[in-house]
Design a protein around this nucleic acid. Structure first.
Lengths: 195, 195
DNA sequence: TATTTTATCCATCAAATGCTGGAAGCAGTG
DNA sequence: CACTGCTTCCAGCATTTGATGGATAAAATA
C-alpha cells in the first residue's frame, strides 16, 4: 500500500506540481481515504520528499545501466545509446521528467531546499561520455553541455502534449523524431574537433 | 495600477506556478488589498490568462526584432545573433522563461486549454533561420530542431538557481557559459551538411 | 458646491485543503 | 473467544484561499 501511494503520488505531483496537487487527489487516484494516506506517509511534504528520494535512486540506477552499456564504444555510439535508453525509459514513465522539471523551475511556498542530486549525475555522465577525463576536475563546458542535453531530453518528453500537435504526428512517430532530433543536434556538437 | 498588477502577477505566477500563487501574494507584492486586485482583474484565472496574452505579444515583438536583425546574414551569424538576443532578453526577465515552462509542463486543475501561440513562433523562427524555405511546408525535422533550441534557452535561464551552483561560477560568467554552450551545441548541428 | 464616477480598503463568506481523533474492521496469537 | 497490533475509514477541525458587499475616500463632472 505504501508503495502504491508513492507511485500514485509521483504521477499526480508530476502532473500538477506540489501546490497543484492535493492529498485528496492522490488518495482518490489510489482509491483510498486521505486518512490512510496520512497514516502511511504523514505530512504532504514528507510524501513529496519521499517521491524525490525514490526518483533519485531510480535515475541513479538508470544511469549506471547506461554507463555499463556504453563502455568501450565510440563517442558517437555512446551518445546514441544514451539517448535511446533515456528516451525509452522516460517515454515509458513520463511523470518522471515532468516531476523533475517541476523541481528545477518551480518554487515551493515555504521554501525548503530539497536536493535532487543532479550535480552528481551530471559529472558521472560527463565522464561516461568521455567529455571529461579526470573525475576531480570536470570542465565547466563539459558540465554545461551535459545539462543542456539532459534538459533537452526532459523537455521533449514532458512537452509532448504541447509539441506533438505542432508537428502534427502521432505518438510513435514523435518518439522517433525526438530521438533523431536529439542525435542530429547533439552528436555533431560533441564529435566536432574540440576548440 | 492595472498594468502594475499585471507585471507583478507575471513574476509571482512565474515563480510559483498557477496553483502555487495566491491572489494575496500578488496583491501583497504590489502593496494593495486583494479587493483592489479583484476590482481591476476579476477572477484569478482571468488575470492568469491576461498574463499569457501579454507575454505572447511581448515575445512576438522580440522575435520580429530578431528576424529583422538577422536578415541577410550567414546561418552561423543568424544563430549567434538569435541566441545572444534571446539570452539577453530572458536573462533580464527571468520570470518570462519560468512562466512559459510552467505553461508547457504543468497542468492546471480544472483544465482550460490555454493557448500559448508557440506553434506560430516556431514556424517563423524556422524560416528566419533558413531551416525552411516554404512558409506553407516546414519539415518536421526543422520544427523539432527549433523547439529543442528554444527549450534549451528557456531551461538555462529558468534553471540558473539549480545549475549555476553545479558549475560553481557567478551570474555574469553563467551568462557567458550559457551562450557559449548553446552556440557550441547548436551551430555545428545546423551548419553540418544536411543528410 | 453638489453629484456622480472611480478606486481603495475592511470585514467577511463559502469552499477547499492540510491534517487528526476515534471508531471499526481484520488478521494473527494465546 | 479474548486480546493485540495493524490498517482503514468517517467525521470533523483549523487554516488557507478565491471571491464579494458595502463603507469610504478621491477624483471627475455638472
Amino acid at each position: 500500500m505504501k508503495a502504491k501511494i508513492l507511485a500514485a503520488a509521483r504521477k499526480v505531483f508530476g502532473e500538477y506540481g506540489y501546490h497543484g496537487t492535493t492529498t485528496r487527489m492522490i488518495a482518490k487516484s489510489v482509491g483510498i481515504d486521505i486518512s490512510t494516506l496520512y497514516y502511511h506517509w504523514g505530512e504532504k511534504r514528507d510524501l513529496y520528499e519521499s517521491v524525490i528520494m525514490d526518483l533519485n535512486e531510480e535515475i541513479r540506477q538508470k544511469l549506471l545501466e547506461i554507463e555499463d552499456k556504453v563502455k568501450g564504444k565510440s563517442l558517437t555510439t555512446r551518445l546514441e545509446i544514451a539517448i535511446d535508453v533515456m528516451c525509452d525509459y522516460l517515454f515509458s514513465n513520463p511523470e518522471v521528467s515532468n516531476f523533475i522539471l517541476f523541481l528545477y523551475f518551480g518554487k515551493t511556498r515555504g521554501d525548503s531546499s530539497l536536493n535532487f542530486k543532479v550535480s552528481e549525475y551530471i559529472s558521472n555522465i560527463a565522464i561516461a561520455m568521455g567529455l571529461a577525463l579526470d573525475k576531480k576536475y570536470i570542465p565547466v563546458k563539459a558540465k554545461a553541455s551535459v545539462i543542456a542535453v539532459w534538459n533537452s531530453v526532459l523537455n521533449f518528453i514532458s512537452g509532448e502534449d504541447f509539441f506533438r500537435p505542432m508537428l502534427d504526428i502521432g505518438h510513435d512517430e514523435y518518439i522517433v523524431v525526438v530521438k533523431d532530433t536529439l542525435k542530429f543536434i547533439l552528436i555533431p556538437a560533441f564529435t566536432q574537433k574540440q576548440s
